[in-house]
């Protein structure tokens, strides 16, 4: 009974998560070919042992070598990292005051505010990104508004630039930043701030010496929750970014669908995963520390 209970989800995940990933890894070692499917070598089970050794001999790290020589790829990785770092920073900048305001709001408002933050979560990601196209485009609402105000004479070019990508990331990932910071700030005992003031702190130093260090775990968690998915982001750069916006998710997509170079696409995926392992481990460690501090 228990065996069956374990076996079903176990094998499901093995078959549809682990095995596919191993296939990606294997194909990343293959060569591109004009065939269906478009890579070489292919191992036919019936051809026996010698076929297997031939097959293994044909695998190599050529695609990875290719990634390191063609500067498109490492530029794309670096640019993804840079965009993710900058966007995470701005998300923190926008998200922290909101989380802080929520945690200081009257108790009876908080469930409503919480729901208002979560509501966009449930709304289609695609639609939320799409909404900004109309706002940021040349004849968009933002330009219309600014020109009506008389702040600018000519429309600003925002859409299809990295700025639009930043705005899109901050907008769509804001709830991921707000929620962990809010939950850290909400747990903060008001009497700690009073104690700090009682011991001679001004409001500002009390914030800096007590509130900020005690919400650090939430800030770190929020930053990782934004940073990690942003690196592999595809929708935002392809809808809001321009031709100069290089992000690795977009490169992988194009490599696969436009160039039909499956081995290189697979190699890109493997490297992307290797890059992500570091922040993921750091994030896990932060969460662990959080749990220990609470337990």
């Amino acid at each position: 009974m228990k065996r069956l209970l374990i076996a079903v989800p176990y094998f499901w995940l093995l078959a549809l998560f682990l095995v596919p990933f191993l296939i990606v890894f294997k194909i990343s070692l293959s060569d591109v070919a004009l065939a269906r499917p478009p890579y070489f070598p292919q191992w036919q089970f019936e051809e026996g042992w010698s076929a297997l050794t031939d097959y293994l001999r044909a695998l190599d790290f050529e695609n990875f070598w290719f990634l390191s020589t063609d500067d498109l790829y490492w530029k794309a990785y670096l640019s993804s990292l840079r965009i993710a770092v900058v966007a995470t920073f701005f998300t923190l900048l926008v998200g922290f005051p909101i989380a802080y305001g929520m945690a200081r709001a009257p108790l009876e408002w908080r469930p409503t505010l919480m729901m208002l933050v979560i509501l966009p979560f449930w709304t289609s990601f695609l639609i939320r990104v799409y909404a900004w196209i109309g706002i940021l485009s040349g004849e968009g609402y933002l330009n219309q508004f600014l020109m009506w105000l008389g702040v600018i004479q000519d429309p600003l070019i925002i859409l299809n630039t990295n700025v639009a990508v930043y705005i899109g990331i901050v907008y769509t990932y804001l709830p991921f930043m707000i929620l962990p910071i809010y939950s850290a700030l909400e747990k903060l005992d008001e009497s700690l701030l009073e104690a700090a003031e009682d011991l001679g702190c001004s409001r500002f130093t009390a914030f800096w010496l007590v509130t900020f260090p005690l919400s650090k775990q939430g800030i770190i968690a929020g930053c990782f929750l934004v940073f990690i998915p942003t690196i592999g982001e595809f929708v935002i750069p392809s809808l809001l970014g321009g031709s100069s916006t290089l992000m690795i998710g977009k490169v992988l997509w194009e490599e696969f669908f436009n160039n039909r170079d499956w081995p290189v696409a697979s190699a890109v995926a493997v490297v992307l995963l290797l890059i992500l392992i570091i922040p993921i481990i750091l994030f896990q460690r932060n969460e662990q520390k959080n749990r220990e501090a609470e337990g």
Binding site: F17, P20, V24, G232, F234, A269, L276
Partner: peptide, 16 residues
Amino acid sequence: PLVMPEVITGLSLLLL
């Protein structure tokens, strides 16, 4: 899968 970029999940399933 919670932290796996969607492009990788999609690619690997397609290849499978």
